[in-house]
Simulated scan of single mutants.
Amino acid sequence: MEPMTQAALWFWLPAALVPFGAWISLSSKTTSTTTFGRAVALLGIVGIVSSPWTVPDSPSSAAGHLLGFLLGPAALLLAGIYLVAFSGNVPVGRLPKSDRRLGVMSFIIGFVWFVGMHWWNLTPALNGEVNRYWLVFWPTFLLLLTCLLSGSALSLRMIGDRRATESNVMWFASAFVFLLIALAMTIDGRAVDAETFRYHLWLAGADLLGTAVGLSIAILVFGFIIFLHERALPEPDSIEPPTEEEFEQVSAIVAANIGGGGEDE
């Protein structure tokens, strides 16, 4: 079998199954179909993670290799965020307060795991070299995380009601992530030196800035087009005022209902 065919069969087909299964799971109205969609998505994830063994010669297998490394810490981070968020001051779906400690521990373990992938002997390496996708993911993740935390803290402070404590926690977390970025820029990691990290950090910053500018321009253009379209529409036709007969009919209905009479309309 040709390498391109192997990559299409063992990597790109499972990659296509993930959004397909998610779409089935989210759009279905029956439990069986939802379960089937989740199973399809899970099968796709397993296929992607297995790509370093199924198609070891394909460059695409590096993405599956990185995904396998990220599943553990990412699951802990997401579980921790969920437990912390829904064990606090939420109107619906509130979890017990005891789950907050579990969520904090889960988040810390997941984040320490991520940090260990840079400074300890946990760096994703494929064929004796650092996974090139990790070099892109790690600085992008840190930079995006500190931006999201800062934005969330500012939003809670300006829009939220009695959210000062949560806002302060967000500011602290953002400062901590920024400190990690500064340390990674000056202190060499186990397999990635500071110069390489700085290089990819600038690229990540350019990517995020370009994405933000592009989204802003797209939103502005969309709003401007809607404005021009609404402005070009003709004025709606004015309706004729009620006639005397209509006034009398309305008055009779109002009088019958307000007066408590037994007459039907």
Rank of each mutant, 00 (worst) to 15 (best):
G47T: 00
T54F: 10
L42V: 09
S58N: 03
V49L: 08
G80S: 04
V49Y: 15
V84N: 14
A75W: 02
L67Y: 01
I48G: 07
L71T: 01
V49W: 10
I48Q: 09
P59S: 12
A85M: 13
L70V: 06
G68C: 01
H65S: 03
L83A: 11
A63E: 00
V90W: 00
V84A: 11
A75G: 06
T54Q: 15
S51A: 14
V92Y: 15
I81K: 11
L78F: 11
G88L: 02
I81H: 13
A62G: 04
L77I: 10
L78N: 07
V40E: 03
S50E: 10
Y82N: 11
L77N: 13
P56R: 06
A74T: 10
G80E: 07
R94W: 08
V46M: 15
A39K: 13
A75V: 01
Y82E: 11
S51Y: 08
P56S: 11
L43P: 03
A75I: 06
I48R: 09
V84D: 12
L83F: 15
S61Y: 02
A74C: 04
R94A: 11
T54K: 12
S58P: 07
P91Y: 11
I45R: 12
W53V: 07
V55R: 15
L77V: 09
G72P: 09
